[in-house]
Simulated scan of single mutants.
Amino acid sequence: MDVTLALKTIADETRMKILTLLLQRNYCVRALARKLNLTEATISQHLKILREAGLLTGEKKGYFMHYDVKREILHELAASIEKLASIEREACTPEYGGCQHKESGNCHVKGECSSEIRKFCHGKEAGGNGGSKHEHCRCHKS
């Protein structure tokens, strides 16, 4: 499964609504179009994208194709996001952070950074005191 493709696919509001409906029961294009108040052509295009991302299967019932969600793919996607969320933050250090500034040696030592270093290393939003957003950095711990 391509995680990026799956996330891009479900990022669309209409496709997310389609997935939600299909998780509740199987629908054909016509039924989805009626439920969502969209044209059948629009629904078909969204279903095509969802199928190409590997999120749907289709089963022919009479003249109509009924769609279902591949739940195992959603579980894999959820596991990928959980794995991403569990990555531990490390303290920033010059040897790993790629600091190129003339004062980078001073930035990552115990104590307070100058406002110039805070802005360089931590962005403009760090302002004058470093801000609580950057407490992971050793330079903000005394």
Rank of each mutant, 00 (worst) to 15 (best):
M16L: 02
F64D: 15
A85I: 01
A126T: 00
C113N: 08
T4S: 15
L50C: 00
C107N: 02
R34D: 14
L5F: 07
H101V: 04
H136G: 03
A31L: 09
T20G: 13
G97T: 06
Q100N: 15
R34T: 06
E135I: 05
H108F: 12
R25M: 12
T57C: 11
A126W: 00
A53V: 08
G58L: 12
H122F: 06
N129S: 01
G123A: 05
A33P: 15
K60L: 14
Q100I: 07
R30F: 11
V29A: 15
S80V: 09
H140A: 02
S142Q: 10
R138D: 12
K110H: 13
I49E: 07
E90P: 00
A11P: 11
K110E: 08
G128H: 03
E135R: 06
P94I: 10
T57Y: 13
L32T: 10
H134S: 00
R51F: 09
R71T: 11
L32A: 08
K8E: 09
G130Y: 01
V69C: 02
L19N: 01
M65Q: 12
T39I: 07
F120V: 09
E72Y: 12
E72Q: 05
L38I: 07
C113V: 07
A91C: 01
I49T: 03
M1W: 10
H66E: 11
I87R: 00
Q100S: 11
M65E: 05
L22R: 11
T20E: 11
P94D: 12
T57V: 12
R25W: 14
G111E: 14
E88L: 13
L5Y: 13
K70C: 02
T39D: 14
A53Q: 03
G127M: 00
G130M: 01
Y96V: 09
E116L: 03
Q45K: 07
S114W: 04
K141P: 14
R71W: 09
G130T: 01
T9W: 10
A126R: 00
S114N: 02
E40D: 12
K17E: 04
G62R: 06
L23Y: 05
Y96M: 11
G111M: 06
D2E: 10
G105D: 15
K61P: 14
T9N: 08
S115K: 01
K17Q: 06
C121S: 01
E95T: 10
Y63M: 15
R71S: 07
K17L: 07
E82M: 06
S86G: 08
